[in-house]
Every structure is written in C-alpha cells, then in structure tokens.
Design a protein around this nucleic acid. Structure first.
Length: 299
DNA sequence: AACCGGGCCAACCGCACCCAG
DNA sequence: ACTGGGTGCGGTTGGCCCGGT
C-alpha cells in the first residue's frame, strides 16, 4: 500500500525488452498526458524505466501508424538514399519524410545498406576485373540498385531553408511528410498531467519540426565536390536519380520521370554511368570517402 | 542436421540542446 | 548568467532469425 516511491525503488531501472504490460502502461500514460513528461512515468512509479527509455519505446514501437515489420519499399529506399545525400546522417530529419518510419528505422536501414555495400565492394573484383562477377553481387543486393528513380525534394539553394523542405510536394506522390499526422490516432483524453503551455494533445507532440535549413549547395554541388561519380553510383542517389540510368537497374521507362514538379535543373544529369563500366570503375577505397560523410550543413 | 555468416531489429548509451527556475 | 532536468538525436551493440553450406 505504499504509494511513495523511495529513491531505492526509483533507482531500480529496468532495462531490456519491453513487456506487453509495460507497453500498456506507457500507452495509457500517453493517452492521458500526451507524449511528454516521460520522466514522470518513472517518478510516479508507473514503470521502472527511464524517461528516455519510455520515449524511445513510444516513438519507435507504440506510436500509431508506424509501419512496424514492414520492409522499406523501393520508394522509401530512394527517399532515404536521396535525403541521406542531402542531409547526411540526420535520421530524424529524414524520417520526417517517411510517414510511419522512425529515425531508428531509417538508421537501421541505412546501416544495413552500408554493411551490404561494404561487403559488395569487398567481394567485388579489382577495377580490372570483368563485370560479370559483379553482376552476381548486384543480384544479391537488389535493394542497392534496383531502386526506381526518386525525385527528391530539391533543397534548392535558396536561402529560405524553411520553405525549401516544407515543400514536400516535390517528394513523392503518396504521402504527407510530417509527423503530426501520426498523432491523430489517439483521441485526446483528460489531461491529468502537468499542463503544458498549450493543451497536450498528441497532435501537439512533435509539432512540425522546423524544416531543415537548406544545404549551402545542392546535391549536384556535393557531387562535384566529391568528384567521385562512383560514390553516387553505388549509393544510388547521386544528386539526381538520373545517375541510376543503368539499363539493368532501371526499367527504361521510369528513369526520366524527373517528376519535373520540383523544377530541378535538368542539366544535372550530366553524369551517366555507362553500364559496362559500372563495376569496373569501383574504386576500392570508396568507403574511405563514404564513411566520414558529414552532414551537408557541415560542409 | 548442424554450423556459420549476414541481415534485421530493438534497445541502450552518450552527447547536445533547450528551457525553466 | 548559471545550473540542472528533460528531451532529442545519432552511434553502437547484442540478440534473434534465416538462408546457405
């Protein structure tokens, strides 16, 4: 019958996999209080988890509309690839473009992809080798190359960073891009928790993050700076999807899609890999350039 | 059938930032 | 102006699963 929590009790921090009961408690809390006050969950003795842990669990697994257990679609892959090239490892930012995906999802997807690419590159023959063998490895990692073209939101180098990314219309046909849409699933219940300055509706949580500032240059600039076409060839994003114009990669009809709507500079398709030189041109030290890829904003 | 390696995923950790007191 | 708590984010790790040998 003890309602007070001693510091010892509070000190017991549970780690590891979450149980269903814990999830239920957490969901209840969010319904009641909104997705905030994470630390109060523990201080109230509801769960022996840290606030961080609770938040993470909510964000990554319990939030409504998550695409749990759903593999990344080809389009999502392209979005990630493209945006990673523009934002760098800003997973949370990238995730805002992928409804139902979390930063963790994106991060995991990317790291898997990196590993896969690393393996492909390692097992790929030196540049002098014939491409045939390489094609086998390509087949083994379809996600790497068989990604239909994607028209990324062009973060035009306009100084208006906010609006540049807030125009997701350029991104993909299907979806809205901001988190807030995900929080409409829970009807707001009574708020017995600390009242925030504004009603703690779930829709308020993560109200639209300020769109990222534009990179100082667009992807093509980045590309030019790296001066390594193969980087983009392998990572499948290259400032423009046009770089993926490998006959065996894309069905011919798709590539030009250039969704046009984003007003991209059509001259960006300057670099087109020749199919028969693709693997030939793999630089063995390619990952030396890839690894330290900083966020564009840091360049 | 057993073993092994790779892929995937959930969760933790540390750092940075923000904001209220 | 300073400080501490809360939160967000990116990196990393460990475990499970699955397919290939």
């Amino acid at each position: 019958m003890e309602t007070r929590r001693t510091s010892d009790e509070l000190g017991e921090i549970k780690k590891g996999p979450w149980k269903t009961e814990e999830d239920e408690v957490l969901i209840k809390h969010v319904k009641k209080c909104g997705a905030r006050d994470w630390s109060s969950i523990r201080s109230k003795g509801l769960l022996q988890r840290t606030g961080k842990s609770c938040r993470l669990r909510w964000v990554n697994k319990l939030r409504p509309n998550l695409k749990n257990g759903v593999k990344f679609s080809a389009e999502e892959e392209r979005i990630v690839i493209e945006l990673q090239g523009q934002f760098g490892n800003k997973w949370a930012r990238i995730a805002t473009f992928l409804p139902g995906r979390t930063d963790n999802d994106v991060k995991n997807f990317w790291s898997s992809r990196q590993k896969r690419l690393a393996r492909v590159l390692q097992s790929s023959p030196p540049p002098s080798q014939p491409p045939q063998k390489s094609q086998k490895t390509l087949r083994e990692s379809p996600a790497i190359h068989k990604v239909p073209p994607f028209e990324a939101p062009k973060l035009s180098s306009s100084t208006d960073g906010e609006s540049s990314v807030t125009s997701p219309k350029t991104l993909s046909s299907s979806s809205s891009y901001w988190y807030q849409f995900e929080y409409t699933a829970f009807p707001k219940e009574e708020n017995s928790c600390n009242q925030p300055p504004h009603p703690p509706s779930l829709q308020d949580f993560h109200h639209v993050p300020p769109p990222p500032p534009p990179p100082p240059f667009d992807t093509q600039d980045i590309f030019n700076q790296l001066a390594d076409p193969n980087f983009y060839a392998v990572f499948g994003q290259g400032g423009t999807s046009d770089m993926l114009n490998f006959p065996y990669v894309l069905p011919g009809g798709d590539q030009g899609e250039s969704g046009g709507s984003c007003g991209r500079d059509e001259s960006n398709d300057a670099v087109i890999m020749e199919p028969n030189t693709f693997m030939d041109d793999f630089p063995m030290d390619m990952f030396d350039q890839i690894e330290p890829l900083p966020s564009p904003s840091e360049w």
